[in-house]
Design a protein around this nucleic acid. Structure first.
Ligand code: SF4
Ligand code: SF4
Lengths: 135, 135
DNA sequence: TTTAAACAGGACTATTTTAGTCTTGTTTTA
DNA sequence: TAAAACAAGACTAAAATAGTCCTGTTTAAA
């Protein structure tokens, strides 16, 4: 499980939008507030759209807003919306990616770690995060 | 924390050597047994040498063997010997890698996840792994 | 009705990382 | 003294990462 800049930016921006829930916010505003390159952010928001996490309004005065209640969005789903499923080792993403997985002693350890990490990430919803937030 | 092929191979090979503790094993033998490209494995073993995990004997009949008791080698140290410290997000490797870390709400979550993962990996020593092993 | 602000989406690119290979040299034992 | 084995550095191809850019569409407001 490695979080790319793209996914990290996504989290920051969903957090920003959480604090402006139901207000339409432009890419430009989010980009400036969260220190994310504008054209890169535009791409990120497109993926969050496809995942149903944000919705967009086109045209002048358009922008983005959360498509769900912040308490129903967790860290894991934002990360997966951006970079797909991930884990610490390939066999924990899909055991077929290593032909040894069926008889490997280490394989179950990676699976267990993946489960633990995902459990932690699922626990963190954006309502909770926004309450603590100072960004 | 993402485990590269290099580190995964290292783990497999340390496990193989655990089952032949105190016997000098050639790169060629390990390479064939563990399905790791020979010249790549040679590089990996060099790093395990520097970390004090294995020792080498040069010349004909030379090879590698563990430099420590298998119960004193854990998964984390093998991984770190190969790829250095790693974590799920850059700020959990070194908080200075993100200028927001001081005021970021998400940062402590990555730190906590790193701690949990490292704890799991430290628990797994090679004596324990070799007992379960069928590779 | 036109214009400008904003999103949509695809193509493109530079840099870094990964996953190796290759070559030349040194050591050691049969 | 030759062959088998490690040592170490240079090299490379492919993939992933971190973006940019350009052309088009939508829509509110002047
Ligand atoms: S831990 Fe085992 S199953 Fe997983 S990638 Fe490594 S060798 Fe394959
Ligand atoms: S989680 Fe926060 S501190 Fe860590 S990299 Fe992301 S923005 Fe920076």
């Amino acid at each position: 499980m490695y979080v790319t800049r793209k996914a990290d930016y996504a989290i920051r921006c969903v957090l920003y939008m959480t604090k402006n829930t139901w207000r339409v916010t432009s890419v430009d505003e989010i980009s400036n507030a969260m220190y994310v390159p504008k054209s890169f952010l535009a791409k990120i928001l497109q993926r969050l759209m496809k995942a149903g996490i944000v919705s967009s309004t086109r045209g002048i005065k358009g922008g983005f807003q959360l498509a769900k209640d912040p308490k129903d969005i967790n860290l894991l789903e934002v990360i997966e919306a951006i970079q797909g499923v991930s884990a610490a080792n390939i066999c924990a993403i899909d055991s077929r990616l290593c032909r040894l997985s069926g008889r490997c002693t280490v394989h179950p350890i990676w699976v267990k770690i993946r489960e633990k990490v995902e459990k932690e990430l699922k626990k963190e919803n954006f309502e909770k995060l926004a309450k603590k937030s100072r960004i």
